[in-house]
Amino acid sequence: MALDTDAPLNSLGFAKTPAETRVVVAMSGGVDSSVVAAHLAEQGYDVVGVTLQLYDHGAALAKKGACCAGTDIHDARRVAEERGFPHYVLDYENIFKDAVIDEFADSYLAGATPVPCIRCNERVKFKDLLETAKDLEADCMATGHYIQRKLGVNGPELHSAEDANRDQSYFLFSTTPEQLDFLRFPLGHLPSKDDTRALAAQYGLSVADKPDSQDICFVPNGNYAAVIEKLRPDAADPGRIVHADGRVLGQHQGIIHYTIGQRRGLGIGGLDEPLYVVRLEVEKKQVVVGPKEMLATRTIPVREINWLGDAPLTSRSEWHISVKVRSTRPPREAILRPISDTAAEIELLSAEEGVSPGQACVFYETEGSRIFGGGWIWRGY
């Protein structure tokens, strides 16, 4: 299986030889970005590998094997040595803390369910790292994300990955047109992750069999509450668990332990009906629970929209699109009604359960693979 080579004079779309084309590869230390770097080096590109140290991998928050931790930096450096291209490690710990970790903690304290991987792409990898690539006089920056960049009539477009099971478009909706000009995603057209691993084995990479990272990089074992309590020691203030009809059902040890739609671990056993978290009332320190039907909603307010359509967002009163409100859910048909250039109301044609403030709402064309951007789900429904 070859990587994407459908481009003018070289596979990255530049009218010059690969040797004259410098490409910075963002290397996380995993198999995906390692294959991208190795393949481009094999094609003769002037490859420069860059790995970000996003947090102190010796600190309590770090997790062995997590993205951008100590083991991964070592693995990325080893791949660069094996394939014979330069590799640099950049200390972005302070930037990552200010731009991603602090907001993650504050969002949870405010009753939202944040997606730090999106903010990391938006505020660190596709911002500061991209500028670093330009400082290195690179022609472009390549990553191991499973998403496609296609040339349309009006310039580069963002499209879902060929492999729907690996598609990462939900996490990349905030990529701007200017960033898309500079970015390349050589894995997006591959049919499956097996093809990526086959390429890693073909190149003899030491990371060919390395497991995929599953959790948020700075959250050990998926325990969000423990991380937030460490970052914000006063976060676990107790409060009441209240039924939507007003009954007090129990006590909790901090709203940070709950998310919208949660059913298990509520600590209110002995009830006949299954109950779900339907609302978090931060000011009252209350967790509100109710029956499953209370989770359903058809109207979603969205703000901080990054619009990737050909015409301006406000050029129409309605856009008929599909949307994802969680990374693990399929797109649902919807109507987008703009309020401004960066805010809109989404009407789902069929109700969705567990829509939560702090999650992303990503826009897709109803038939096809193009991504029209997205925004952040806001309070108000």
Rank of each mutant, 00 (worst) to 15 (best):
L3N: 12
L9Q: 13
F14K: 10
T17S: 11
E20Y: 06
T21R: 04
T21Y: 08
R22Q: 00
V23I: 07
A26S: 09
A38S: 12
Q43T: 13
G44F: 10
Y45M: 01
D46F: 06
V47I: 09
V48H: 06
V50F: 03
T51P: 14
A60M: 10
A62T: 13
C67V: 06
C68M: 11
T71L: 13
D72W: 09
R83E: 05
F85V: 00
H87Q: 03
V100A: 01
T113I: 03
L130V: 00
E131K: 01
D139L: 04
A142S: 10
Y146L: 07
Q148G: 06
Q148Y: 11
Q148W: 10
E157Y: 01
S160E: 15
A161W: 05
R166T: 04
D167Y: 05
S169T: 02
F173T: 00
T175E: 15
L187N: 03
L187G: 03
L187V: 05
G188I: 04
H189S: 01
T196V: 09
Q202V: 02
D215M: 03
P220D: 09
Y224M: 14
A225L: 04
V227Y: 00
E229F: 06
D234I: 08
D234P: 06
A235C: 12
D237L: 08
V242G: 00
V248L: 07
I255F: 03
I260G: 03
G261D: 03
R263D: 06
G265V: 01
G270S: 07
L275M: 05
V278F: 01
E281D: 15
K292Y: 11
K292R: 07
E293Q: 09
E293Y: 09
A296S: 14
T297G: 04
E304T: 00
G309H: 11
D310W: 04
P312M: 12
R316W: 14
A334R: 15
L336Y: 10
E345I: 03
I346K: 05
E352V: 08
G354E: 02
V362M: 06
Y364P: 14
S369R: 07
W378M: 15
R379D: 09
